[in-house]
């Protein structure tokens, strides 16, 4: 067990360091960055904002982490998020009691059920038909926004439902609901994957699906499950986005969120080649992305250029992860690197 400690340290050192650097930049730019104030029993402050705005990306990234751990990818999460928002808002708007709590619960359950169906569809394409994950989910990525527009009839559907609004903009026990939901999902995922064999099985499938199957792991079921989970997480994220604005925008809700999620996963140290994953890393990655989005306007650069910084982040992280760069960097540390590899395998 003590062997694992340097491994964890090694994996998370860079992302955490990057996050800390960003936070320091923020503090230098705005000294009041860390201050959190209490107002009407709610917590406010930049850090709370980062957590709250980062909740959808974190949720999507959680699902994405497990998908990537099986050597897959899910490009359709943004479209699924849009569909979730569209279904929920249309359902609420079409109800006879628009502002009732029951309506919101029914609407959200319907939306999540639809997302699970979409996840089943993705999983079917990947695990049963054996289509490459990029392409299988590309189908829904292309068609999904069309479906969302079909649901909303091409309009931006606005709703007025206090219970629904709480998910994205409400507070429970001084904290925004969005943060609590995201952290609860993170916690459940962590317990399910790290306190049961599930996480190991997912990694086994990611390393070699065929070998895992021969060893008695139900590869197909596991792959199917992770796509359903990813779609479910995307659905919650979509509900959050729709709830935050009390509107479903089929075109723009969750736009590029799949890329942000992949970025968060990659920054967190989960290898795109599959076979190992780190939920903590994903959390750090999602926070990094959201902090970056906050930092750029703070230090006086147009907010839109954050793409540029994301690109640099992806390139740097990938280069650091690539075997060639590692070999070049770790010439002196080779004895230390050997047990790390053993730990991974």
């Amino acid at each position: 067990m003590p062997d694992l400690r340097p491994l964890v340290r090694h994996q998370l050192m860079w992302p955490v360091l990057a996050l800390v650097v960003l936070l320091v930049v923020n503090v230098v730019a705005t000294p009041s960055f860390f201050s959190i104030r209490m107002q009407d029993g709610h917590l406010y402050g930049s850090l709370v904002d980062i957590l709250r705005n980062g909740a959808p990306v974190l949720l999507v990234a959680l699902g994405m982490t497990l998908v990537i751990a099986t050597r897959g990818i899910d490009l359709s999460v943004g479209a699924i998020a849009a569909i979730a928002g569209a279904v929920a808002c249309t359902s609420i708007a079409g109800s006879s009691q628009e502002s009732a709590t029951g309506t919101a619960i029914v609407a959200m359950s319907t939306a999540l059920a639809v997302c699970v169906l979409l996840g089943l569809w993705n999983g079917f394409l990947v695990s049963v038909l054996g289509i490459q994950p990029i392409i299988a989910t590309l189908v829904l990525m292309t068609a999904g926004r069309g479906l969302a527009m079909l649901v909303t009839d091409g309009q931006i559907t606005t709703v007025n439902n206090p219970a629904f609004r709480r998910l994205g903009a409400g507070f429970v026990a001084t904290l925004p609901v969005a943060i609590i939901v995201a952290l609860v999902v993170l916690g459940i995922t962590a317990v399910l994957t790290r306190r049961t064999a599930l996480g190991m099985l997912i990694e086994a499938v990611g390393i070699n699906p065929e070998a895992a199957r021969l060893a008695g792991v139900r590869s197909r079921t596991i792959i199917w499950t992770v796509y359903v989970f990813a779609a479910f997480c995307a659905g919650i994220a979509g509900l959050m986005i729709a709830s935050n604005t009390s509107a479903a925008d089929a075109n723009n809700a969750g736009l590029f969120i799949e890329l942000d999620a992949i970025l968060a996963v990659v920054i967190g140290g989960t290898s795109l080649a599959g076979g190992r994953f780190s939920l903590t890393g994903t959390l750090v990655g999602a926070l990094f992305i959201q902090t970056l989005a906050t930092t750029i306007p703070t230090i006086g650069i147009p907010a839109e250029t954050n793409y540029l910084f994301k690109a640099v982040a992806v390139i740097v992280v990938c280069l650091l992860q690539s075997p060639q760069a590692r070999a070049a960097l770790a010439v002196n540390r080779r004895p230390a690197a050997a047990p790390v590899k053993a730990g991974v395998a």
């Binding site: 992949i262 793409y307 994301k310």
Partner: peptide, 25 residues
């Protein structure tokens, strides 16, 4: 980058995508 650092085309061109959009802005 794809060939010499053996980074998956998907992620390398994803970075390229972000880079080009960022340069636009």
């Amino acid at each position: 980058v794809i060939h010499y650092f053996q980074i998956q085309p998907f992620i390398a061109t994803l970075a390229g995508m972000f880079l080009a959009r960022g340069l636009c802005y």
